[in-house]
């Protein structure tokens, strides 16, 4: 089956963010960017499905500015066969991204779509579920294990308090959680080869999707700083402070 993998360009997870002085947004000028960690897991899962002979072709797709092609090249180096770049400089919210991806699903007819469960910039955790709604497909979110069983997809999900396994009809939408796999690193020869793999360019207008959202970002602030406290010298002192100063014991 064909597997579609969506990836997002986000701030590198090691970077400490700064809020802009005018509080309009987070300042991303000259900040190191990378593929969203959950999307790396999504790409890895697709590659493993291909190695198992379940997937026959992997198509990577992203919605974002021109620079997001870097992340598509990374996906191609990791094992995707071709890529689709939907270029926009607008702030595309989850619903708009899901609408764009739904158009791609319509064109490509994949047997499975794998996405990260959330992007570490907006922390929304929405796009996969929304894509499932718009394509009228079942969803296996927060997956820690994915197995094709005949015409069904068994997805083990990380839920509050444990694990839940559901069986979904195919095609299906899967979003990845941390323990699904451990992504590999791209090898240099594969990075070179990825430069020659095909990449289609599209715009939201080509797909007939309006990116503008009814949600406006009014303000971005730094959270209240938590002040560091004191160091205690012993367990006795700690217990004393917790009992008599903090009064939490």
């Amino acid at each position: 089956m064909k597997v579609l993998v969506a990836v997002k360009r986000v701030i590198d997870y090691n970077v400490k963010i700064r809020v802009k002085a005018d509080h309009s947004d987070v300042d991303l000028t000259n900040v190191k960017m990378a593929m969203n960690p959950f999307c790396e897991i999504a790409v890895e899962e697709a590659v493993r499905l291909k190695e198992k002979g379940v997937a026959t072709e992997i198509v990577a797709v992203t919605v974002g500015p021109k620079a997001a092609q870097e992340q598509l090249r990374t996906a191609l180096a990791l094992g995707a066969d071709r890529a689709i770049h939907i270029e926009t400089d607008e702030r595309a919210e989850s619903l708009a991204v899901a609408k764009l991806l739904a158009k791609v699903v319509d064109e490509e007819q994949p047997g499975m779509v794998i996405l990260g469960k959330q992007a570490i910039d907006t922390d929304n955790n929405q796009t996969g579920q929304m894509l499932a709604a718009l394509t009228n497909l079942p969803q296996g979110t927060f997956a820690s294990e994915v197995a094709v069983d005949g015409d069904k997809l068994h997805v083990t999900r990380e839920i509050d308090g444990g694990l839940q396994t559901v069986a979904l009809t195919l095609p299906a939408i899967v979003t990845t959680d941390l323990r699904l796999n451990e992504p590999r690193y791209a090898k240099l020869p594969d990075i070179m080869k990825a430069k020659k793999k095909p990449m289609d360019m599209k715009t939201p207008a080509d797909l007939g999707v309006e990116v503008a959202s009814k949600v406006s970002l009014l303000k971005v602030e730094s959270p209240a700083e938590r002040k560091g406290g004191i160091k205690v010298a012993s367990v006795d002192e700690l217990v004393d402070k917790l009992k008599n100063e903090a009064k939490v014991l």
């Binding site: 989850s94 955790n125 579920q129 969803q139 979110t141 927060f142 509050d160 949600v215």
Partner: peptide
């Protein structure tokens, strides 16, 4: 914003063609 809420509400939002505010 439990694993149930996070699973279900974005699907509802998209079906109603509205955005969702998380968390």
């Amino acid at each position: 914003a439990s694993t149930t809420g996070k699973n279900v509400l974005p699907r509802l939002a998209a079906l109603k063609d509205v955005s969702q505010l998380s968390d």
